[in-house]
Simulated scan of single mutants.
Amino acid sequence: MPPFDAVPAKALNAHAISRHVSGAAFGNLINLSGRRRFTSQRLALYAVLAEQNPGAGHMTIARDALKLLTDAHRALVQGNRDTPGIFCDELHNAYFGPLQADAAISAFISLGHDALAAVERRAPAADGLVTDLIDSAARLLPLLNEVTQLYEALARRHAEQAQQKRAAVMHRIETIAKQARMVAFNAKVVAVRAGSDGREFSVVASALTDITGEIDELVRQALGGIDD
């Protein structure tokens, strides 16, 4: 039985825990966590069916579920091209702290390999291993739910922080635009006082006024999108 290559806590460095995560990556993480929850239960169900009715295709479904579960867990813990793995202290604590989610999920995956192998061989131990797999799946489900809820909470926090940052940038731009309008107004006053000598200066001031007007409109549109 090929053991699942779980990652020890000491292998996760500070860079991995503090990396930036995009909104799209959060979507992938939540989907993978939900898939892990679904496939764990599917694995247990089809292991039972494969034991009761060999040759009906149940073993293929059980093995597919086990592979999906293994791949999802590996991506969530180790990361890949589309997912960051463990990127914050909350997740590190969930997987390697008191909850020991990584150890529990890895043990379930290993038990799944053992149970399916025994069922395929029709070994005497198959019935006991399948029973253990069912019991383990039931115990694992609340843990998987808790970890999935953590990903969802982290995604909400990320969205709120991103919204606050965008709003802060837009308000900063709005402040700069107001300052630019004051400069344009003062420039027009100077141009009027200078008479014909200030004609070119007046043209520049008018152009600056037009630019600040465009900035104001962009800020209003951006802030409107943020508020929505």
Score class of each variant (00 low, 15 high):
190 V>N: 04
49 L>Y: 03
227 D>S: 13
184 A>H: 01
211 I>T: 11
217 E>D: 12
55 G>Q: 02
27 G>L: 06
185 F>A: 14
96 F>N: 11
166 R>H: 05
198 G>W: 01
217 E>H: 12
135 D>I: 03
153 A>W: 00
190 V>E: 05
219 V>W: 03
93 N>D: 13
50 A>K: 01
69 L>A: 03
135 D>T: 03
188 K>C: 05
152 E>D: 08
228 D>S: 13
41 Q>N: 12
65 A>T: 00
139 R>A: 11
142 P>L: 06
225 G>T: 05
223 L>R: 08
129 L>R: 06
42 R>S: 10
5 D>C: 05
209 T>S: 06
9 A>C: 11
120 E>A: 15
93 N>K: 08
87 F>Q: 12
43 L>E: 06
152 E>L: 09
53 N>D: 08
144 L>G: 01
16 A>K: 15
95 Y>S: 04
2 P>A: 15
86 I>N: 10
198 G>M: 03
36 R>M: 13
204 V>K: 13
15 H>M: 14
214 E>V: 06
115 A>Y: 08
46 Y>D: 10
219 V>S: 04
150 L>R: 08
32 L>N: 08
195 G>D: 04
123 A>I: 00
150 L>C: 01
213 G>W: 01
161 Q>E: 13
78 Q>T: 06
155 A>E: 07
67 K>R: 10
228 D>V: 15
210 D>N: 07
28 N>H: 11
177 A>F: 00
124 P>N: 04
208 L>C: 03
61 I>M: 10
49 L>H: 00
170 M>F: 10
6 A>C: 06
78 Q>W: 10
137 A>Y: 04
158 H>N: 10
59 M>Q: 09
143 L>G: 07
81 R>E: 12
59 M>G: 09
154 L>N: 04
69 L>V: 01
162 A>V: 03
54 P>E: 02
196 S>F: 08
64 D>T: 05
148 T>N: 14
122 R>G: 10
57 G>F: 05
49 L>N: 00
157 R>S: 10
65 A>S: 15
101 A>C: 08
104 A>K: 15
23 G>V: 06
32 L>K: 08
13 N>I: 06
62 A>L: 00
36 R>F: 02
193 R>G: 10
127 D>N: 09
179 Q>K: 09
108 F>G: 03
143 L>T: 09
66 L>C: 05
116 L>D: 07
20 H>T: 12
187 A>R: 04
218 L>Y: 04
37 R>H: 13
99 L>P: 02
46 Y>K: 04
127 D>S: 10
2 P>Q: 14
44 A>V: 01
218 L>P: 01
221 Q>N: 15
3 P>C: 05
85 G>P: 04
71 D>S: 11
74 R>P: 00
197 D>Q: 15
61 I>G: 01
102 D>M: 14
70 T>S: 09
150 L>N: 02
18 S>Y: 14
